[in-house]
Design a protein around this nucleic acid. Structure first.
Lengths: 234, 234
DNA sequence: CGCTGGCTTGAGGGGCATCAAAGACCGTGG
DNA sequence: CCACGGTCTTTGATGCCCCTCAAGCCAGCG
């Protein structure tokens, strides 16, 4: 363990982020060029169109990746959680605006330096390729949601996704509680709906006894089967 | 040139496909495991859910990548043209159904063999990573279209994209003619609309004098500025 | 306690889907 | 050459889902 760089010793995402592809002693290549940064809630990490100067691992918190039309309609194209990777290595500019939805802890690498590490560590590059392919699959799955599903299916599917990702307790068939990490408005921007429609669908699910809404952003899935039925398809 | 494998000598996409990342003499690693296959129009190349057994370069023709809900609603999540890559290396199963929209000429590699070539040719893997990141950008851009744009914007934007991709003549500011490579129904499946709505938007553009529809799948963009105005945003 | 930001709820209208039918196009065969 | 069936496209009529506009509600906070 002596070979593990100091700053990585107690890292919460050592085995989940891209770093998992590297042995302890190889990590120094990354650690040497890394710096830590806390981004407060609401602050933009990188603007679409700007020069791409950095990549990062998200240590904790939630980020959104979004694009918007010239008249201000926004579409969230990805949500990032602890362990996820941010940035466009080998690309000259940033394609999406990244914003912190909660206070976020980033482990940041200068882009060009990160690219050099990639070139000398094939396992890291392989990991990045896999992650990128997974993101592509996820994006394409969401295209089906955006293009072809009803508001009810969208919201139900979103709750299932979140429940799976942030599952605290998993009594199979039983109830499952968690906090939605984003606001109703942001849910709307993820699902291609308006905030009112999201709200109405949520109360419809509550009225049907499928979920409970214990204040704030909490959700409890009371009837998983019924929720899956409403999400349909997949 | 003597080092260029026979089957690659006259290949139309030598410099556009992933192969472009390899020197002539390195190409044999791929060429040795390749076989050519013509897939007739309408035939499925790979079914979502099947075991992933192959990757391929598309030499000519058009493929669609699509998912669908359990009740049959379809969403086309990508169109592939000559030079594009098909397949999921490092993934055990196929995530999307790929179908030939025209007779398609494929240069096919067994998946595991292709993975071995990737591992021994970093430049090839780098190229694949870049391509995958580009696909991800494209997918996310289309998420904005699907989630936030009106039918008029979707159709106008689609025509602009196609015009750019299949531009035959580019009199700047002047007219631009090409054939839409897919049917109205497939346009609908790309844009998350119905065939009727696509058709109505097309005739609306024709009536407004922005495009001409010279029979079949031909299109002529008469007023590029107006078309861009209708596509808005970006 | 008032203010602010997010959430919910209601009323009404519009955009797009749905249903339906009539052209256009095309290869086939008489 | 033209009738013929099939497929694709266009056009029309109708309705519904979701957006839009507009209040009211709730919690947090100075």
């Amino acid at each position: 363990m002596a070979d593990l760089p100091d700053r990585c010793v107690s890292c919460a995402i050592r085995d989940e982020a891209l770093c998992a592809s590297l042995h302890d002693r190889e990590l120094s290549a990354l650690s040497d060029i890394a710096r830590r940064r806390i981004v407060p809630k609401g602050q933009v990490v990188a603007w679409a169109g700007d020069r791409s100067t950095m990549c990062a691992n998200l240590v904790s918190g939630v980020l959104k990746l979004a694009t918007s039309t010239s008249d201000g309609r926004e579409q969230i194209v990805g949500l990032l959680f602890a362990g996820d990777f941010i940035g466009n290595p080998f690309s000259e500019d940033v394609s999406l605006t990244a914003t912190a939805l909660s206070d976020a802890d980033l482990c940041i690498y200068p882009r060009t330096g990160f690219e050099r590490v990639l070139e000398s560590h094939p396992k890291l590059e392989r990991m990045l390729l896999r992650r990128t392919m997974e993101s592509l699959d996820e994006a394409r799955a969401r295209m089906l949601t955006l293009g072809r599903k009803s508001a009810a299916e969208k919201v139900a599917g979103f709750l299932l996704d979140m429940g799976q990702k942030i599952a605290e307790q998993c009594a199979p068939g039983g109830s499952r509680s968690f906090d939605i990490p984003i606001s109703r408005g942001q849910m709307a921007d993820v699902l291609g709906l308006t905030i009112e429609t999201v709200s109405r669908q949520m109360t419809a699910l509550k009225t049907a006894g499928i979920i409970a809404l214990p204040g704030g952003r909490g959700v409890t899935i009371l009837d998983l089967d019924a929720l899956e039925a409403r999400a349909e398809s997949e």
